[in-house]
């Protein structure tokens, strides 16, 4: 894991509404919170975090971080932000969630290729609704 991954992780955390994430390896423990990054050389462990990291890195489905209306395209645009097959970078918007007049991006947590859009344009969705498949780019 490189420091580039950290920004991916923090983007993902913001998207998922997670305030804090702890990662533990054989010789390190890393704690991320929305206020910044803290590295510890403390070996005290939490094996669950490895599991969460693996899940996240291999994740192929981006879920709704909030209740809203899922939009494939911006209301002023005719083209979808990221139709199936689009190569996207981490942090790029895959779609939008509309809450009243507010538009919140559905963000790619990793570099990858957009798979199926699982929900039709302009569909109301609940928290956690699976929205977009993302095939992660091959490991660095």
């Amino acid at each position: 894991m490189s420091f580039d991954d950290l920004s991916d992780l923090s983007a993902w955390m913001a998207e998922a509404g997670i305030d804090e994430l702890e990662l533990t390896g054989p010789s390190f423990r890393l704690r991320l919170d929305s206020g910044g990054v803290h590295a510890h050389d403390d070996l005290a462990d939490d094996r669950q975090s490895d599991t969460r990291l693996d899940q996240m890195l291999s994740s192929k489905v981006i879920a709704a971080s909030t209740v809203g209306i899922f939009l494939h395209r911006h209301p002023l645009h005719e083209a979808a932000l990221a139709p199936e097959g689009t190569q996207v970078r981490a942090g790029q918007a895959l779609g939008l969630l509309r809450i009243g007049p507010l538009l919140v991006p559905v963000i790619a947590p990793l570099d990858g290729i957009v798979g199926a859009l699982l929900v039709a344009h302009a569909t109301p969705v609940g928290f956690g609704t699976r929205l977009v498949e993302l095939h992660p780019a091959s490991a660095r």
């Binding site: 209301p75 002023l76 507010l102 538009l103 919140v104 991006p105 963000i107």
Partner: peptide, 11 residues
């Protein structure tokens, strides 16, 4: 940064 509003012309 990183969010927006839907234009009132549409709303």
């Amino acid at each position: 940064g990183g969010f927006g509003l839907s234009p009132p012309a549409l709303d």
